[in-house]
Amino acid sequence: MPIFDMFRHSWLVAGRIALFYLVFSLIWIYLGDLMLFHLIEDTNRLTRWQTYKGAFFVVLSSTLIYALILHAVKTLKREQAKAEKILSSRNTALKQRNSALKQFNYAVSHELKTPLVSIESSLGLIHSSLPQNMDPELTTAIGYARSATRQMNNLLESLLLMFQLDAADRVTGATALRALVQDAIDQLTRGGKLNGIKLTIADEGLDFCGDRNKLVQIWLHLIGNAAKYMGDQKHPAIAIGAEPVGQDIRFFVRDNGKGIEMSYQDKIFGLFDRLDKTADGTGLGLTLVKRIVEYYGGTIRVESAGAGQGSCFYFTLPDALINKDRTT
C-alpha cells in the first residue's frame, strides 16, 4: 500500500482494530465467565481461575498489540525505503541535469565565445588596415558583421545569465540600493548609453542580501531600456527609486520616453520579444529581469499611458531585501 494511502486510511484501520478488540474482549469476558460459572462451584477456585483467565487475556492482547505494531513499523520502514530509493534516483537525475547545465554554461562561456572573439578580432584587424579610399560599402559591410558579432555575444551572455539564475547565489554581504543602481549607471555611462539624460535616484537607505551581479542586472536592463526607448524627447529623464506600498517596498524605474502601447504591455517580458526591431538588444533583457525578480520572490509590471507617454516599471524583491521596515 502506498504510504499516502496508508495514512489517509489510518483512522479507519485503527477504528477497525479497536472495534475488533472491544467485541473480542466482551465476548471473551462473557463466554469465559459463563463457562467458569458452569464448571466451578467453589468460590475460591472460581476467583483463582478468573485471575488465570484475566492473565491469559492480558498475554493474548499484548501479543496482538506486539504483532500489530511490528507490522505497522515494518510497513513504514518498507515505504520509507521505497521513498528514499525514489528520492535517490531523483537526486541522481537532478545531478545529471545540473552537470548537463554546467557543460552548457561552459560551452556558452568558452566554446561559443572563442570563435566570436576570433571573428571580431579578424574583422577589427581588417577594418583597421583598410586604406582611406576604400569602397564605403565594404566598410559598412564590415561594420554590419562586427555589429552582428557583438549582438551574438550579448545574446550568449544573456542566455548564460538566464541559465545561471537558478545556480547558487554568490552572496557578498549587504549591498545598498544606491550601490546597485550606481553600478548599473556606471556600466551604462561607460557605454555612452546615458548621454544627455537627467537621472534622479531616490535613495531610501535600503539594503539587499543576494547575488550582487544578479541584482545589478535588474537596474542595468531597466535603465538601459528606458534610455534606449527615449524617442525624440527634448528633456529625457529617468527616475529610479523605492516607495512603501502596504507592507511591501516597491521599486520603480520611470522615464518620459516613447512609452508602450497598452496592447504590447503584456508582451514585453516574453522571450525574444522586441517591440522595436531597429533598436539594439537581444530581446532577452526584460525576460531576464522578470526571472531575477521572480527568483527573489517578487513581481514586475509596467505602466504606460500609451505611445509617447513614458513608462514606469514597478517591481518588488521581498526575498532580497534586508531592512524592509525602514521606509514604512
Binding site: L116, V117, E120, G124, R150, N153
Partner: peptide, 10 residues
C-alpha cells in the same frame, strides 16, 4: 576575460 570587441581587446 577576452572581450568580443576588437578595440577593447587591444
Amino acid at each position: 576575460t577576452k572581450p568580443v570587441d576588437f578595440d577593447k581587446f587591444v
